[in-house]
Design a protein around this nucleic acid. Structure first.
Length: 595
RNA sequence: UGGCCGAUGGUGUAAUGGUAGCACAGGGGCCUUUGACGCCCUUAGUCAUGGUUCGAAUCCAUGUUGGCCAACCA
C-alpha cells in the first residue's frame, strides 16, 4: 500500500460549512445549493473572490450546485458590460476547480431550473437573472396584498423616512396602511401599467412600524422607475427591491443556503418574513452571513473602485494595481493563488483587516512552482570581459524551474559584452555586500565567475562600464567549477538581449487602511505605484505566451501584459510588455532598510 | 432611551466543556550557482470581573469595546 498519496489540501472547515454539513446530514436538504449573486454594476474584486470560493467551494465539497445569478433589480445602475465581465471573471476563477458545479440555465427559461455543464447536452447556457423572475415576483406580491400583508403607500420618500422613525424611537403607521385589498390590488395594477410617475407610490409590506429593527417597519417591496433595464428594456416601470427579490429568487432556484455578508444580518428577519408569508410548499432557504474581506493597502467598495476608474486615477477596471479580478489577472495572479488565499483567511463573523502579506505569500507560493526562470536586467550596466574575444560565444544550459525538472532547460549565450543590473555593482559597498565591487569576484548565474578589474566612468563620474575577466574554468563542468564565491548575479549577453517594456507595479495606497478615520482615500494614493522601464531580456522571452508565468531571477515574478478584452476573445498576439506581479522576497534590501 | 452581531499572539484563524494549535508577519540559524525556494529553532494570545463545573477560550451574568442598521440602493 502506498503511504505517499498526492497530498490534496484538506477541505476548509468553518461555521457555514458546518451548517451545510448538518443540514445535509439531517436530511433537511438532499443537495446543497448555494448561489453567487452579484449586482452587475461593477467589476468583481478580490472580496467577491472570497464569496465565490466559499459558495462554489461548498458546492464542490458536497457535490452540490452553485448558481451564478445577476441580481439586476435596479435598472439605473446595471449594464451588460458588467454582466459580461462578471461571467468571464467567475469562469476564470473556478475553471478546472468547481466549474462542473456551476448552475446556469437555458436561455428563455424563467422557471429557476438549473442546468449543470454535464447536463447541457450541447445547449448554450447563461447565468440566472433576478429580472427573469419579475413576472413571478409580481404574482407573489399580489398574493401578499390579498393576504393583507402588503399595501400601496402614497407617501413620498421624505414622508416615508419621517414616518419610519429612528432606531431608538418607533415609527408611525402610514395613513395608507389600512387601504382595502381591492383598492390595493387596483392601485398596484395601475402602478404596473405606468399610470403614476416615479416616486409617487410604493408597494409596502405590512409588518410593524414599531419594530426595533428598522428593516421591519413596513419596508418597500416595489418602487416605480420609468427606466430602461439592460435586459427587460422598457417592459417594466415597476421594479422589486432587493429585500423582496432576493428571497424569492433564492426560493425559485431551490437555493438551500443563501450566504451573504454581515451587513445583511439585520435584513434576515425580513428575508424570512417574505418566504413565510407566502406559505410556499418547498423547504425554505436559510440566509447565513459572514464577514466580508478587507485587505491592507487597497479599497474594496465598488463605489470607490468606480471612482478610481472614472477619474482616471487608474487605467481602467483591469489596471494591474486594482484589486479587481480582471486587474489581478492582468497583473499575473493565478486563480490558484486566489483560491489558496480564500482558504487561508477562513470564514468568520469577525470584521478584521487581513494583511497583504498573506495574499502575497499565496501568490509567491503558487508562482514559485510554475514560473519559468529567466534572466532579465532591469537597470543595465555594461560589463566587458576583456579575455573573451569579440564574436566568441559560449552556450550554457539554464534550468527553467529548479523545483520542477520536467520544465526542462534552455541555452543562454555568453559573450564578451554583457549587461548586469546596476544593483549588483557598488564602488564602495557596505559590509556583507556579496555582489560585484572593484577588484571583487562574483558568479554569473549559469555561467562562470568574473573579476572586476577596472571601473570606467564618464565625464560626470557615472559608472558606464566595468572591465572584467572571466574565469571559464569555473563554469559548470569546468576544472574549477566547485569554486565558491559569496554572490551570484543575473546577466544577459549584450549581443543577444532583446528590449521590452517592463511595468513595475506596487501597492496602490501608502496606508494600510486607506479609508480609515474618514479620510479621503484618494489622498493616500501611492504616487510610486507604477513605473515603466525598458529592460534587457534573454531572447527566449520573445516567445512568451499569455499563459506563461516567469520569474526574472533574483528580481520577481512577471507575466505578459494582456488587457481585459470585452469580447471575451483573447487577442492572438500582444506587444511584448511584461507586468511585474510581485517582487521576490529580498532579505538584503530589508537588512539595508533597517539601517 | 433602540436593535442585531462580534471580541483568541502583530495579523488572519483552529480548538464545538478536557494538552490553546496552524498560517502570515517578526527574530535567529542552516542550505544555496536566485540574499529566492527549502529546512530548523524562536518571540508572542483566550477583552475584564464574577458565577456554574472535577475541569471554561467554549456555558451564564455584568461590564468594556468594535462593527452594522434610519435608500423608493444592493
Amino acid at each position: 500500500m502506498s503511504e505517499s498519496e498526492p497530498t490534496t489540501p484538506p477541505a476548509p472547515a468553518d461555521f457555514i460549512r458546518d451548517i451545510v454539513a448538518e443540514d445535509l446530514q439531517s436530511g433537511k436538504h438532499p443537495l446543497s445549493v448555494t448561489r453567487f449573486p452579484p449586482e452587475p454594476n461593477g467589476y468583481l474584486h478580490i472580496g467577491h473572490a472570497k464569496s465565490i470560493c466559499l459558495n462554489f467551494g461548498i458546492a464542490r465539497e458536497t457535490h452540490g450546485r452553485c448558481n451564478l445569478r445577476m441580481d439586476d433589480t435596479n435598472p439605473t445602475k446595471e449594464e451588460v458590460e458588467y454582466v459580461e465581465s462578471i461571467q468571464a471573471d467567475v469562469d476564470w476563477l473556478i475553471g478546472g476547480w468547481a466549474d462542473d458545479r456551476l448552475g446556469r440555465k437555458v436561455p428563455g427559461d424563467v422557471s429557476g431550473s438549473a442546468v449543470l455543464p454535464s447536463e447541457a447536452s450541447g445547449r448554450t447556457l447563461e447565468p440566472f437573472f433576478a429580472s427573469d423572475y419579475f413576472e413571478q415576483m409580481l404574482a407573489l406580491a399580489v398574493e401578499l396584498i390579498r393576504r393583507g400583508k402588503a399595501y400601496v403607500c402614497d407617501l413620498n420618500p421624505e414622508e416615508m423616512s419621517e414616518y419610519r422613525g429612528v432606531p431608538e424611537r418607533p415609527g408611525k403607521p402610514s395613513p395608507w396602511r389600512e387601504r382595502s385589498v381591492e383598492e390595493n390590488l387596483d392601485l398596484f395594477e395601475r402602478m404596473r401599467k405606468g399610470e403614476f410617475p416615479d416616486g409617487t407610490r410604493t408597494l409596502r409590506s405590512r409588518i410593524d412600524m414599531a419594530s426595533p429593527n428598522i428593516h421591519l417597519r413596513d419596508p418597500a417591496l416595489y418602487r416605480i422607475r420609468h427606466a430602461t433595464h439592460h435586459r427587460t428594456g422598457d417592459r417594466w416601470c415597476l421594479y422589486p427591491m432587493y429585500d423582496y427579490a432576493h428571497p424569492i429568487s433564492d426560493y425559485l432556484e431551490g437555493i438551500t443556503h443563501s450566504i451573504c455578508t454581515l451587513e445583511f444580518e439585520i435584513h434576515r428577519p425580513f428575508y424570512d418574513w417574505v418566504l413565510q408569508s407566502l406559505n410556499l410548499p418547498r423547504t425554505l432557504p436559510r440566509q447565513i452571513e459572514f464577514a466580508r474581506l478587507s485587505l491592507g493597502y487597497t479599497v474594496m467598495s465598488k463605489r470607490k473602485l468606480l471612482l478610481l476608474v472614472e477619474e482616471g486615477l487608474v487605467s481602467g477596471w483591469d489596471d494591474p494595481r486594482m484589486p479587481t479580478l480582471s486587474g489581478l489577472r492582468r497583473r499575473g495572479v493565478r486563480p490558484e493563488a486566489l483560491r489558496a488565499f480564500a482558504a487561508a483567511i477562513g470564514v468568520t463573523k469577525y470584521n478584521g483587516l487581513t494583511e497583504v502579506s498573506v495574499f502575497e505569500s499565496c501568490i509567491r507560493d503558487d508562482l514559485n512552482l510554475v514560473a519559468l526562470r529567466r534572466l532579465a536586467v532591469l537597470r543595465p550596466i555594461k560589463v566587458v570581459l576583456t579575455n573573451i574575444a569579440e564574436g566568441e560565444t559560449h552556450w550554457f544550459d539554464a534550468v527553467n524551474n529548479p523545483s520542477n525538472p520536467e520544465l526542462g532547460t534552455r541555452k543562454i549565450a555568453f559573450t564578451r559584452e554583457l549587461w548586469i543590473d546596476s544593483d549588483d555593482f557598488m564602488e564602495v559597498p557596505p559590509p556583507k555586500y556579496f555582489r560585484l565591487r572593484p577588484g571583487g569576484e562574483v558568479r554569473l548565474k549559469y555561467a562562470c565567475i568574473i573579476r572586476c578589474d577596472e571601473v570606467v566612468k564618464d565625464a560626470a563620474g557615472e559608472v558606464v562600464e566595468l572591465r572584467c575577466t572571466a574565469d571559464l574554468e569555473t563554469r559548470s563542468g569546468g576544472a574549477n567549477a566547485a569554486k565558491k564565491v559569496k554572490g551570484t548575479i543575473h546577466w544577459v549577453s549584450a549581443a543577444h538581449a532583446i528590449r521590452a517594456e517592463v511595468r513595475l507595479y506596487d501597492r496602490l495606497f501608502t496606508e494600510e487602511a486607506p479609508e480609515a478615520d474618514g479620510r479621503d482615500f484618494k489622498s493616500v494614493l501611492n504616487p510610486e505605484s507604477a513605473h515603466t522601464i525598458t529592460a534587457l531580456l534573454e531572447p527566449t522571452l520573445a516567445e512568451a505566451r499569455q499563459t506563461d508565468r516567469f520569474q526574472f531571477e533574483r528580481v520577481g515574478y512577471f507575466t505578459l501584459d494582456v488587457p481585459y478584452s470585452p469580447t471575451g476573445v483573447a487577442p492572438t498576439s500582444v506587444p511584448l510588455i511584461f507586468n511585474r506581479t510581485l517582487g521576490l522576497k529580498d532579505s538584503w534590501a530589508k537588512e539595508m532598510a533597517k539601517k
